[in-house]
């Protein structure tokens, strides 16, 4: 049985229409119009225990809203979500003891206290035994290299250090399901890498089920075998990351270098879309079904030194997918 089951999950927000300017604001005092925003629209998926799934989508696509519904923070407008057999929106204590949510944009640590105080409070709230607490704490602070920072005021920590403690605070009770919402947002490259590696190791070691949202492709690529792509509230893809490219990209890239450097751009143009061009080297974007024919043409008509056929980079594919969704 899957650990997370989501069926036709939908969240609709009603927001007030604002007319521009001061006059509009005055008018808004007396008479208001509302618009509906379908933040999450009929999304279904299942996740098995131990999986690490990435949610991919541009800002406002509905990734975070979905996670919040899985956490019981938001009530779904319609549809169903079940996590470990619980309905999240009922917010049963038994459920809340078994999952954790980390949000890159919000913090739960006490600002004016050392991180260890917040951690200890969490331990007591979750009812974690002293011994288990000490063990997790040692392990995590070691792994994330923040042991020395335990006694420092949270307000004096860097963003990356704070994020690490946020992670620890959420893992003290050894959740079975871990929801990570943009855990690397705003961090520098090194901190991003640290956290990424930690998540990977944690997932492998503990077999915790993890959902990760991020708009850094690097995060998703490094961590997730499976991705769910969400755009405008709709699920538009669910499967292996590599398959995203196959599904959404109708083209491949052919990189070719020539023996003598006097090939002009015009000569190449009929063969495909010339993305890069120097006299000795060119990159062509060619529809999938014509890759073979085009390579043949290149090899027969030009003196080719080297030829290389690649998929379009995933960032570009994803970017294209999101752009198309906008139209």
């Amino acid at each position: 049985m899957p650990i997370i089951e989501v069926e036709h999950l939908t969240k609709i927000y009603r927001t007030q229409k604002r007319l521009p300017g001061l006059g509009g604001a005055v008018q808004g005092l007396f008479n208001r119009e509302y618009t509906e925003v379908r933040a999450v629209d009929d999304v279904s998926f299942t996740i098995e225990e131990g999986e690490l799934v990435g949610f991919l989508g541009p800002n406002g696509a509905g990734k975070t809203t979905t996670l919040k519904m899985l956490s019981g923070i938001l009530y779904p407008t319609s549809g169903k979500a079940r996590v470990m057999g619980f309905t999240p929106s009922e917010r049963k204590n038994d459920y809340r003891r078994q999952f954790a949510l980390v949000m890159g944009q919000k913090n739960q640590l006490w600002w004016d206290l050392p991180a260890q105080e917040s951690l200890y409070l969490n331990k007591e709230i979750y009812g974690v035994e002293d011994e288990a607490y000490q063990k997790v704490l040692d392990e995590m602070t070691e792994l994330l290299q923040v042991k020395k920072l335990l006694g420092i005021m949270v307000r004096e920590l860097s963003l990356g250090e704070r994020m690490k403690f946020e992670l620890i605070a959420s893992l003290l009770h050894r959740p079975r399901v871990l929801l990570l919402d943009e855990p690397t947002i705003g961090l520098d490259v090194v901190a991003q890498k640290n956290i990424r590696e930690f998540i990977k190791e944690y997932n492998q070691k503990t077999k915790t089920t993890i959902i990760l949202t991020s708009h850094y492709m690097n995060d998703i690529q490094a961590l997730c075998d499976r991705v769910v792509v969400i755009n405008h509230g709709h699920k538009i893809f669910d499967g292996r990351l590599d398959d995203v490219v196959e599904k959404f990209s109708q083209s491949k890239l052919i990189t070719v270098s020539f023996k003598n450097g006097n090939i002009s751009k015009d000569q190449l143009a009929p063969l495909g879309n010339v993305l890069e061009y120097t006299q000795v080297k060119a990159v062509l974007k060619v529809p999938r079904d014509q890759v073979k024919k085009t390579s043949n043409d290149l090899l027969t008509n030009f003196e080719v030194d080297d030829i290389n056929i690649e998929e379009v980079p995933i960032e570009e594919v994803i970017e294209m997918v999101f752009k198309e969704g906008d139209q």
């Binding site: 604002r18 604001a25 005055v26 005092l29």
Partner: peptide, 15 residues
């Protein structure tokens, strides 16, 4: 000044 006023008026009941 005027944007501030708009912001305030958005929360009608409060006022």
């Amino acid at each position: 000044l005027s944007t501030r006023t708009q912001e305030d008026m958005a929360y009608r009941a409060n006022y």
